[in-house]
Design a protein around this nucleic acid. Structure first.
Lengths: 222, 222
DNA sequence: ATTACTAAAAGACGAGTAA
DNA sequence: TTTACTCGTCTTTTAGTAA
């Protein structure tokens, strides 16, 4: 959980344009905006930098500050909360695409028992050790980007047998009548038009799917 | 300026549905959501109540909490900030209405030098000691409510000559080619369909306006 | 189970200072 | 002017307790 004061500082930087590019900012200017002393403002900036929410480059007469992707994500989470408060219409997202073959990273994760246990805890079903890969239609790409910012379940990474396993996140969804979840690595969010879906059963068999079949994935989120 | 922690607590309550109606909430449940002790959560609730952002009704096994209009306004301000961050399209609001006569409260404020000085500082012009009153078209009422939540300049109240003068807020705007500002009292926001506009000159003369003339007020806000 | 007080511990704040 | 340290103070937090 990110500190409330840090979020406040981060938001202030973003309002100054810190998400779009580096902005000049002194401790004093930030401090006066926030009603705190330059010392405290300096401490806040250091804290934000430690959490990798901002990157700074010091100059003799101040510093240039830019919000990182991680910082922006944090702000977007907050933004999503406010949207939930004021736009309580239960929003329904639909992704469309075609079934494809191919080993995604998700399949690998699902082969590891520890991840399956964790997903069981969050999703309410122990997933089948494999994923259904779907290549999204171009029209679904913006939708995918949008759902990137709503609330995913997070399965933290861990170390075992001298190997590190990265964090994975999952978003509950539905394909026809089956409860499923979209899974992807937490960290590296390289843009791709492929999603990987898990379910209790092997979806390919349960839904009698073949490559190139058109399919709809529904996500409901309030 | 509202405390960052208080805002965080208020947001959490709102997410639980506290804007829509009373919700059951114990100090412990709020505390665990926020990662703080029940004691601190209790203090936060007391603080929010003192600031009139929530109203509570105590029950033996917890309390019912609801967010007040004032609290919701606070949250909306925050929401507006995030919209500014992520939807940087420079938004243009237009209010339409007709010129009317009549002493508004704004006119009274503009007769007091101290307010004029303060406005000068914020707006960049010393306003004419009078206001142009405009009765908004019904279609502009929702727009007016929307701009209520964006950033106004605040001129704090003060006491002089054994008399208290309330706070006033102002929103820069434009009428034709004149830089102006909408003014209204900070506190009491009774809904009304009349706005009062100040400018450096007497707008009525400068624009050659008469009662019932139709007029447009533009507000640009990014 | 609650709320909310008191008091001790922890942490944050800003003045002063050096670079 | 900056940043960012130390240090004394003050605030906030939590544990303990009563109602």
């Amino acid at each position: 959980m990110v500190e409330a004061e840090d979020l406040q500082s981060l938001k202030t930087i973003a309002l100054l344009g810190g998400c779009k590019g580096p902005i000049w900012l002194s401790s004093q200017s930030l401090g006066s905006k926030l009603g705190i002393s330059p010392q405290t403002a300096s401490r806040r900036l250091i804290a934000l930098e430690r959490q990798r929410f901002i990157v700074r480059s010091m100059k003799p007469d101040g510093q240039y500050v830019v919000v990182t992707r991680e910082g922006e994500q944090q702000l977007r989470r907050e933004y999503a909360d406010y949207i939930r408060i004021f736009n309580p219409k239960r929003k329904q997202y639909v992704l469309t695409g075609t079934v494809i073959s191919g080993l995604g990273e998700g399949r690998y994760y699902m082969s590891i028992p520890r991840y399956r246990e964790q997903f069981n805890k969050h999703l309410g079903f122990e997933p089948f050790p494999g994923t259904l890969n779907i290549r999204l239609d171009p029209t679904s790409i913006p939708v995918r980007e949008e759902i990137e910012h709503i609330e995913w379940f997070e399965v933290p990474g861990f170390t075992a047998d001298d190997r590190t396993f990265g964090g994975v996140k999952a978003l509950p969804c539905r394909i026809r009548d089956y409860e499923c979840a979209i899974v992807e690595p937490s960290r590296t969010h390289y843009k791709t038009d492929v999603i990987e879906v898990i379910a209790e059963l092997e979806l390919r068999k349960a839904l009698n799917l073949n490559d190139n079949d058109v399919i709809e994935v529904e996500i409901s989120h309030d």
